[in-house]
Nucleic acid binder design. Structure first.
Lengths: 256, 256
DNA sequence: TGTGCTTATCGTCAGAGAGACGACTATGAT
DNA sequence: ATCATAGTCGTCTCTCTGACGATAAGCACA
């Protein structure tokens, strides 16, 4: 048992390992998917897990998250405006801190505190496996969170819990912010944006009311001038994300 | 320079110190106040800082936050329903994880990652100083965040940033949850609850519309039967917090 | 024993926004 | 040419909010 010790005593403190774990979400053909890597070594060998890794001695937490993301997906992320921001990269995904997990027994080998980050990205090609992960894949979150009748194999460590928190954060945050555009390519149509909301929330939205809402919210969407028919049907106007970050009034999620 | 190392390599990992810091907020005569302790030793000797301390090897993060809170204020907190919950205590304050701060140079002596927790408590007697803090006090956040013309002495470490994040979280969270009741004693009147909103947001609210809103939201308030005149004027009905945690539709903050 | 001050509570009205849904437009497929 | 598909514009109704009048029920003091 440790007796009470001085705050920040530099000579004696219990050492912890600190890692970052990434909840990387994207929308692939009408469903919300998370990036998973397969563990190639014990513990939880062969299980699927969230990508992540150790924080290095000289890097910040967001910096570590951003580095791991680049290593595993090639994505460059821009942090939400705030602390520990990393310079905006080329093909930008949204990155924000999610929460920190530190149960004493969450890793059977040693005391590990993991800072989870949430990444929202547009649809990407199938990920390349990197590092010590023997493979990587996009998995629909509905199969992972027990929302479908037979939920799949559980994730390694407490990653199922972390994933659930990340999904919940994404679901609530697109309600009152313009974050849903992070799931879209640089130019997108109102219909594509609507399908993002539908995939993340798992509901159907009225196309007419949705159109009125998003085009009527100042600063949410900027017309880019062009049109496209890539979804079939009548050509749709293309937009880019506007400067607004907070939606007031929010998008309302049905029933909830 | 560290070369790429295996994920969770148990034999070689950079050691970090992990601490918890507490943003303890309360409402004292019409203003939102934060609990500060004075540092008795370097670095930042003599500066005001957030209460906090090391996480012990065998305790969880929320557990450490709860323990530090009890040590410094005597408060027992119940965590929000969720992970790492601690058993509900007697005189309950709300406790939830805020964010984690890990700039490599945030502590001049060593690499410290600090997990910040947000505590919302009803008005308390002047705090007793505990541990190695030579004194403690409630400070109005408006004096600390540069919202008033002359902001006071800056806080130790990055605690000014952490405090700002905590205040922002509290301000936004009372909008869409029933969390404002955490600032109230077990029984309270609609007027007392309104003064909580006014203090936290720094605005004046219309008493009639506020009354209609909170009494019309199912599950927010439960009439306890009694009345009180402790605020002067006509006796007001007493309520306790209802079971609802999410307000739908939310309380609307003026202008913002 | 009023008179005034304070706070609580109820009501009314106009305007903004959401949900439901009809109608029309502009493409590609057959 | 016709149909299927998706996009876009309008309308109607209902709910909720903000502004604000009116009344109720205590206390302080003359």
């Amino acid at each position: 048992m440790i007796v009470a010790m001085s705050r920040y005593d530099p000579s004696a403190f219990p050492p912890f390992a600190v890692t970052v774990d990434l909840v990387v979400l994207t929308v692939r053909d009408h469903s919300l998917c998370a990036l998973l890597v397969r563990r190639g070594e014990p513990p939880y060998q062969g299980y699927w897990a969230l990508p992540g890794g150790f924080v290095r001695p000289d890097e910040g937490l967001a910096e570590a998250a951003s580095r791991e993301l680049a290593e595993e997906t090639g994505l460059r992320a821009h942090s939400a405006p705030g602390h520990e921001a990393v310079g905006p990269g080329a093909a930008g995904a949204h990155l924000e801190q999610l929460a920190t997990y530190g149960h004493p027994q969450r890793d059977p080998r040693m005391r590990v505190v993991s800072v989870a980050y949430l990444v929202l990205a547009p649809d990407l090609p199938t990920p390349r496996a990197g590092g010590d992960a023997s493979s990587a894949r996009w998995a629909p979150v509905s199969e992972l969170l027990g929302e479908s009748p037979a939920d799949g194999v559980p994730l390694a460590f407490d990653h199922g819990l972390i994933l659930a928190d990340g999904v919940e954060r994404a679901r609530s945050k697109i309600e009152y912010s313009s974050l849903a555009t992070a799931f879209c390519p640089p130019e997108f149509t109102v219909g594509e944006l609507r399908r993002v909301y539908e995939a993340v929330w798992g509901v159907a939205l009225d196309p007419r009311n949705f159109h009125r809402k998003v085009t009527g919210t100042p600063g949410f969407l900027l017309p880019s001038g062009g049109t496209t028919t890539r979804q079939g049907g009548r050509p749709a106007q293309l937009f880019t994300a506007g400067g607004a970050t907070v939606l007031n009034p929010p998008m309302l999620r049905p029933d909830s």
